[in-house]
Design a protein around this nucleic acid. Sequence first.
DNA 1: TGTACATCAGTGAACGCGCGTTCACTGATGTAC
DNA 2: TGTACATCAGTGAACGCGCGTTCACTGATGTAC
Lengths: 205, 205
Amino acid sequence: MPKQGYHHGNLRQALVDATLRLIAEQGPRGFTLSDAAKLAGVTPAAVYRHFAGREDLIAEVARQGFEIFADLMEHAYNGGKPTALVAFEATGRAYLAFARKFPGHYPAMFESGISLNANPDLARAAERARGVLLRAAQQLSEHIPAGRRPPASMFANHIWALSHGVVELFARGAPGTRGPFTPEDLLESGIGIYLRGLGLVPPDA
Amino acid sequence: MPKQGYHHGNLRQALVDATLRLIAEQGPRGFTLSDAAKLAGVTPAAVYRHFAGREDLIAEVARQGFEIFADLMEHAYNGGKPTALVAFEATGRAYLAFARKFPGHYPAMFESGISLNANPDLARAAERARGVLLRAAQQLSEHIPAGRRPPASMFANHIWALSHGVVELFARGAPGTRGPFTPEDLLESGIGIYLRGLGLVPPDA
DNA sequence: TGTACATCAGTGAACGCGCGTTCACTGATGTAC
DNA sequence: TGTACATCAGTGAACGCGCGTTCACTGATGTAC
């Protein structure tokens, strides 16, 4: 599909890639449309052949991010195999892995200030990602004694919040940068304690 | 102390207040030094009588935020009374309460992209806030059977991450805005489950 | 109490800059005959 | 196979704008005598 004769052939994706690199290097605040164009070897005006403007470009980056994010969590979840618990823990790990391996996507999705509803494709992708985590939580919740089983959406949100907090505070140069624990340790142990609190892990594990 | 004869008398704090209002209304990205000056009824150049520049103004806002934050958590912690557990839970609630009641300070502290080390006063204030939470965690951890007691700094970080995640994702118009739970419910229940996982709350509570 | 003077907070005009966006254009590519 | 033409991706110059910052200044306040 990519043609390399110079009409660039694939400028749309080249601009997305340039945006990713800029955000990864300088944060979502540092990104400018003009820089992205320059990095793609093209005039700023050329961007408007492929995107409605700056906002639209960021939205596409975020959309692709949510697609990858959903895929990655889906893969980690693995249909709930071998057990609901193991699958759920893997999904949690996938969250952090995504944030670290896609340092351009994650900020575009969560720190760029973009509205998820501005763009239907973006909204759909974000919804799908949320859905994966929710499904993992639902299946897991069936193993909790029905009497004191919290709504699955609630503890999906707990895990999401804990993961996001770890990413924001400890996986970058942010406030809590200090400390002997890696973000991975922190998230893994946090989820472990939390699941024990739900009665899903034996107290002596 | 404030003189109301027109040399303004208290422009420094007026600028801080203007910054707070702008950030609360438009987010940390929307803030400009010029707008803050205008809101304070003053020329942009006047700002430089009191601050080294834009960065320095934001740093002062963040510093004041951390001082209030630390005070609030300290007050909630209440020296560990009546019990370590109750005091700890109150401290967690204070986190969210601060984020909601000081919607200008919180973003300046955690979303403005400011470096906590650029300014020694700021670094000190941030350190104090961290210290309060850590102390609460330490005292609480003494109630955990020594054998499987995780480092206090680890579970202080867990609570910090969970709280921050709830604020970022659910206490604003952000991604997870939907759902039947208030942020307060979410954080309270999350901390509850977590503490049960630590063996600090009886399983049938 | 009154005058002369130093201080210094705030003014107003100007700056250079880089941003996002527009517009008429050009020139390579693909298609019709 | 070759020529004529339509398409449309990218150019280059220009725009208006608002930003953070600077500078020489002014004028109110406080102090010394």
